[in-house]
């Protein structure tokens, strides 16, 4: 028990780039992103899958990085909030959060943003109910969710305008 288990060497695909690094076999993806790769945009609010703050995309789907083993994400593309903006341009979801004041303390924001990006990849015209259902796994204590729902709708609207306009 006292002998520290040795780290494993593996390649993860994070935000479009392969990175080879060493981590503990029992490290969560949350720990590896934050502590090994210093991608601290992904947050933790409960460590037990009860708040949604640590959400990232794995294989394009939102997962709770606090309950995902990093070793179980080898060969699967991982997108954290740092990978959402394209070059120096904010993603429409980020822009809408900014424009409408949907981020207050900003701590739940990265989780909301990656989940909202995932939703809008499936449909850019979600109803309010669809937005609320898709993001129901994310707690926010600041906003009352109102501006978050509005921001996701606005982002979808802007994405539609770009695609069809």
């Amino acid at each position: 028990m006292s002998a520290a288990p040795s780290k494993m060497l593996a390649t993860l695909n994070v935000n479009g780039r392969d990175v080879t690094l060493a981590f503990l076999p029992h490290a969560t993806l949350l720990e590896v992103l934050r502590e090994e790769l210093r991608l601290t945009g992904t947050k933790h609010g409960c460590e037990l899958g009860q708040c949604g703050a640590c959400t990232v995309l794995v294989d394009g789907a939102p997962v709770l990085s606090c309950l995902t083993l990093a070793a179980d994400t080898i060969d699967r593309p991982i997108t954290s909030v740092e990978g959402i903006a394209v070059a120096d341009a904010l993603h429409p979801v980020q822009r809408a959060f900014l424009d409408l004041g949907a981020a207050q303390c900003g701590y739940c924001t990265p989780g909301f943003i990656v989940a909202a990006v995932h939703l809008l990849e499936r449909t850019t015209s979600p109803s309010e109910t669809e937005i609320r259902e898709a993001l129901a796994g994310h707690l926010c204590r600041c906003t009352g969710y109102t501006k978050i729902v509005e921001a996701v709708a606005l982002a979808g609207q802007r994405m539609r305008a770009t695609t069809h306009g």
């Binding site: 909030v81 740092e82 904010l90 980020q94 959060f97 900014l98 981020a103 900003g106 924001t109 943003i113």
Partner: peptide, 8 residues
């Protein structure tokens, strides 16, 4: 402070 918060 919103810029830093929406990008993580």
């Amino acid at each position: 402070d919103g810029y830093a918060k929406v990008t993580g």
